[in-house]
Design a binder for these strands. Structure first.
Lengths: 153, 153
DNA sequence: ATCGGGTTCATACTTTCGGGTGATTTTAGT
DNA sequence: ACTAAAATCACCCGAAAGTATGAACCCGAT
């Protein structure tokens, strides 16, 4: 019941304390000599807190979309079996699959190109399409997703 | 060399600008009539900014996760068991393991840095050491090897 | 024959990685 | 208290990766 307003109460008390301090200093005739400084500190602290509060209030939470919740269990102790249906559904070509497999072994674009006797630019094109089809932006993500989807062992 | 103090310099310049503005107002005889108010506003704004900055610096970002349902294929094989002996033998530190795990999910250095609240440069250092310990040269190879060695699932 | 998909390649540009170096600060163990 | 390891950060550079766009060629299907 109180927890909800805990912060508010806390700030209120702090404020009250500061005011009390101010009053005390005033009574001590300190305020008359350094009125400006004291008020400055007061304002500074107050707005510091306001700033913190504002920042907390105004920053909107980053939205992170988390995918993949429906789980289909698959026994990996069995030899790898390619998910051909998914390959077709995603429209992944055979050449793209080749490149994917080689990439997953940790080869660079250049090395893949050399292995397939084509230009590195071609590999880049294949990978760009593959990334689009897998809806990823980096090779590591592509490999991770391809493994999950049963496209590579 | 300068980047380290970039923020400081920036605030310093802002402060100087504000002071210049203040001086200008003073010259315009505006300040004499409302000296206290002007200074109060000045202090208020300054500490408001400091407050916002403080809050941003000290509080970690709120993250709201949105769950999006999709199909995932998961294996029914035995649960992952970390090869702690190997971790020790290779001299891989706990922080390096953290970075390794995040990297394996396909995050970029920048994203890992954000997740761990450190600089991207730090991540690069961790990864460089990790690569050396794993005797690889690329992140994909590192992930592949780490999986083979039982360092990550 | 032509149309679309797949493969190939190029060029240009931006971003990210990885290597190397050096430095400071924290932490933990003797 | 001192030391060694771990963690942090910066800066530079070159290589690799990724993005965007355009274009040529082959091949099977309409």
């Amino acid at each position: 019941m109180f927890k909800k307003y805990q912060l508010l109460i806390w700030y209120g008390l702090s404020l009250a304390l500061l005011l009390a301090l101010l009053r005390w200093m005033e009574l001590k005739y300190l305020l008359y000599e350094h009125a400006f400084e004291v008020y400055a500190v007061f304002i500074a602290v107050f707005f510091l807190i306001i700033g913190i509060w504002l920042s907390k209030k105004l920053t909107r939470p980053k939205i992170r979309t988390e995918v993949m919740e429906k789980i289909v269990y698959r026994d990996t102790s069995l030899p790898f079996e390619l998910n051909q249906k998914l390959v077709y559904e995603l429209g992944i070509s055979s050449r793209e699959m080749e490149v994917l497999q080689l990439m997953a072994t940790g080869l660079s674009n250049q090395e893949i190109a050399a292995q397939l006797f084509v230009s590195p630019n071609t590999i880049k094109t294949h990978l760009a399409r593959l990334f689009e089809k897998l809806d990823v932006g980096k090779r590591v993500q592509a490999i991770e997703k391809a493994k999950r989807l049963g496209l590579i062992p």
